[in-house]
Structures are given as C-alpha cells and as structure tokens.
Design a protein around this nucleic acid. Structure first.
Lengths: 177, 177
DNA sequence: ATCAGCATGTAAGGCGTTACATGATTCA
DNA sequence: TGAATCATGTAACGCCTTACATGCTGAT
C-alpha cells in the first residue's frame, strides 16, 4: 500500500463488507463518511488500479445486467491483512483545515460585521449537515444489533456531538462580538 | 495570490499585525493556530518568494543584531486588500480528515479491543491538546480588551469546546463497546 | 567541544483536485 | 429529444510533505 495514500484504507474498509465498483465507492464517500473523509474519481480509480497490482484487491467479472461496463472489486486475503494491520497501528493523523477559524483568527483585519456574517454562514452550514447526520442516526438506531451498525452509529454520533458543540459556540461567539 | 495555496492568507493574516520572518511564521503556526492549520518550511518559504513577486509582501532590511541573516517580511497595501477580500468571501472550505473516525467506522474488521484502544489513544491525545488550549485561554482572558485578543480567544474556545465534546463522546463510546 | 535553537532555502516525489473524454440507459 | 444517472478513466497542474544542505550563536 502506498505510504501516504490514505484513500487505500478507505477502499479496503468498504470492500471488507461487499464488492464495489469505483463508482459505488464514490457514492459511499458522498454519504455518511463524507463528513470526515472525502474522495474523488481521479483519486479512487488510480488507487484501485494500483492496489490491484499490489494484490490487495481483485477485479470481479461484470455480472452485466445491461448498462455500461461495471468493474466490481473484491478484497483479497492480503488486502484484509493490510486493513487489519492499519487498524492496529496506534497512531492516527487527525487533521482539521478550518478556513472559518482562519477567518475568525484574522478577524481584526476587517469589520466585525464581516466576522459575524462568516460565523452565521458557518452555523447554517453546520445545521444543514447536522440534519443529515440526524437522519442517519435515526436509521441506524433502529438496527443497532445488526452487523457493524454500532460502528457507523458511533461515527455518526461523533459528528452530531461535535456539530452541536459548534452551534453552541456560534451562539456564544455572536453574543461576544 | 495563488488560487489554491491557502498558506498565503495565513501569512498575510500574520503579517497584518507585525513584520515576520519565515521562521517566525512557522513558530506561529506551531502555536495557537496549529490545531486548525499546519504549515512547513517547504511550504512557507516558497510562498513568501511568490507573494513578494506578486507584490503582496515586501522584504525588509535585516536589522542585524548578530546571528544569521533574517528576512522579515512586511505586508503591502495590496496584500492588505487581498486579505480583506478573502475575509469577505462567504464560502469557506472546512475539512476534517480524521483517521480515528476512519478506524472507528471500519472497526468491524477487527477485534473490539483494538477499537477501544484506538479511542483511548485518541482521548489521551485530545486531553493533551486541551491542556495546551486551556493555557492559551487563561492568558488571553486576562487581556480580552487588548487589540484582537477577542478573535484569538474565540478561536481558542472553539477548540476547547470541540475537544470537550470529543472527550464526552469518548466516554459514551467506550461504554457502548 | 558539542548540542540546541535560530535561520533560509532547495529538491524529489507523491498526492489530490479539477476538468475533460466517452458512452450507455432510463425517464419525462 | 434531452437530461439525469450510471460508469470508467486520463491529463494537467498545483500543492504539500519530507528530507537534505548550510551555517551562525550561545549555553553547557
């Protein structure tokens, strides 16, 4: 596995449940995973090709039911091992790149009203995302006993809890300014 | 300003208060800004060179007081305008890349104990960072009336509030697993 | 003497975003 | 007929990380 290409483990993780095409993977990334990890086609397809060469995934025959060619990928035993060993590594790089905070930090260079507007826009954005996450949670909560739902549930509640903290902070911040 | 090189506005923001060398800028990034934005020498120096060519910053003569050469940079009027217009743009890209969440989401592929250990490690990390942010806050709180301290204070409390939400989540998550 | 901190920069290489190219099917 | 969705991929380009190269000063 490429050293710095984290998309690899995302793909392996998704494939550990079911065979997926590059297109499917993109859809998953646009779903519940999207709030903490992003991916693009130009990112996913080359990674799949590279990982097949490395023997981490294998191509399945297209069970063509009409439509354009589909290339579902399957995780190999070696891929599963790579995934597990990554999961067991203790260190994890967690990175935030919050332009909103950057704008806040440098707020002194412009009018207060601009900063307040920025916080407002951020708050609305967060509320929109929160609504989506709450939907995911409601669905997951009903079937917590199933399979790996507990992990999805915890991930989603992480998002909800932090977004709620953001919103509380926004209220305080607007009052202070 | 380069379209996708966000380090530019970080530099402009820092220079809007005082002249700084590349080395100084790096130190600032390792401080209170570090928790939501990172930078490296190989990132900063080329950006400074490019921005000087674009007329956003200018080199100041080294007021050499011994030691190696220092090249402090000063923000130009044009740089200030660029900074302001960026501050006024409403959209801001906020990105999270949380490997911890990735490991959690794919926790089903390994033993529960591994996931619990990962959460534990994350929690300890957060607590360490929180302690640092609390120190920053205590210092800022004393002089909230000064200059732009309110903005630094708000940025730091954003970090504190979210980190505290993380810790609460960790407790819940460990109980559930 | 030697190590840490101050200080500037370059080089290699990888990774990711964005846009482009292509084409089938389904539904209004 | 045209738009949306499914589907795979390439190319250009830029950005960033990491490692390397260099050398001074001050403290131990």
């Amino acid at each position: 596995m490429a050293k710095d290409r984290k998309i690899d483990v995302v793909i392996l993780g998704l494939l550990s449940h079911e065979d997926l095409t590059g297109y499917d993977i993109k859809k998953r990334l646009d779903g519940a995973i999207g709030f903490f990890w992003k991916g693009s086609f130009g990112n996913i397809y080359p990674a799949l090709t590279a990982m097949e060469k490395e023997g981490l995934v294998s191509k399945k025959k297209d069970s063509k039911t009409g439509g354009r060619e589909r290339i579902p990928y399957h995780i190999t035993r070696r891929g599963t091992e790579t995934l597990k060993s990554w999961l067991q590594e203790e260190q994890a790089s967690n990175e935030l790149r919050y332009e909103t905070l950057l704008k806040l930090f440098f707020g002194g260079a412009t009018d207060r009203s601009v900063t307040i507007r920025n916080i407002q826009a951020f708050e609305e954005d967060v509320k929109r995302n929160l609504a989506v996450l709450n939907m995911y949670r409601d669905n997951l909560e009903k079937r917590l006993d199933e399979d790996d739902h507990i992990f999805y549930y915890l991930t989603v509640t992480f998002g909800i809890d932090t977004y709620e903290a953001y919103i509380k902070w926004c209220t305080k911040a607007k009052k202070l300014l």
